[in-house]
């Protein structure tokens, strides 16, 4: 059973009432994200948002082994939040989930609301809040930034899986003991979080090394360009 909880929820895993409730939650959350994202999306960040979405899409197709018989894939909330910010990030993850459901039949259409709530809203928010809280460490240098990315990704994964537990408790199969489901889901996602953390840290580290101007978390920390001449520092 753990094979499935590591992937998107499919149709029929939650009952219709719960599915509709979380579609509502997702629509409201995305409307807020869209209104806030408009201010941050320009000619430079639009391709970044598109690339983050495409990157998440490609990496979500690759399942890495966690335990024998159990595999997980990247959720991507923390990666998106650190690179493009929480609002655009939530939209990126949601778009990935919608396209996967519509085109690649990965994750159910009616379960989209719950999937978006977990991975796009809870995941991105958790990843961003952790990164924001540790921003001082992240701005200190490469090691700091990479460690913050790792921690944010682990927290994002575990909190997103807790979202699933809540939804399952509200409208899932009652024949399953909830405690066992919660323990399995959270345990598996703790392990997935390590894989997620490694990928997030590698990606954020590489982008920050080459193009620190593209990392949302590092915005406003660049030192203004200094012109040094033979006489000293010019204005």
């Amino acid at each position: 059973m753990s094979t499935s909880v590591a992937m998107h929820m499919s149709d029929g895993l939650l009952n219709a009432t719960t599915s509709m409730l979380f579609i509502g939650v997702a629509v409201v959350g995305l409307a807020v994200a869209a209104s806030r994202a408009r201010a941050t999306l320009d000619d430079r960040t639009a391709p970044m948002a598109g690339l983050v979405a495409a990157f998440l899409f490609a990496t979500q197709m690759i399942n890495f082994p966690v335990l024998p018989g159990v595999s997980g894939h990247l959720l991507g909330g923390a990666l998106a939040a650190i690179l493009v910010g929480p609002w655009v990030g939530a939209l990126c993850v949601s778009i990935v989930l919608v396209v996967q459901a519509l085109v690649f039949a990965d994750g159910g259409i009616t379960a989209l609301g719950a999937n978006i709530t977990n991975m796009a809203l809870i995941g991105t928010a958790a990843g961003f809040l952790v990164a924001l809280a540790l921003r001082g460490i992240a701005q200190r240098g490469r090691v700091g930034l990479v460690s913050v990315a790792f921690i944010a990704a682990v927290v994002n994964t575990v909190l997103a899986s807790l979202g699933f537990v809540v939804e399952f408790a509200m409208g899932g199969e009652t024949s399953f003991p909830l405690g066992a489901v919660a323990a399995t889901v959270v345990g598996v996602h703790g392990l997935i979080g390590i894989g997620e953390g490694v990928i997030t840290a590698l990606t954020v580290g590489a982008v920050a090394a080459v193009r620190p101007d593209l990392v949302y978390l590092l915005r406003g920390t660049q030192r203004p360009l200094e012109l040094r001449t033979a006489e000293g520092v010019a204005a």
């Binding site: 869209a34 598109g50 979405a53 939209l91 778009i95 396209v99």
Partner: peptide
Amino acid sequence: VPAMVITIATLMLRYLEVIA
């Protein structure tokens, strides 16, 4: 669907090929 979402989705489909 909001234009911004369409923008991101269009770029995403294009960039899948770029990444590959």
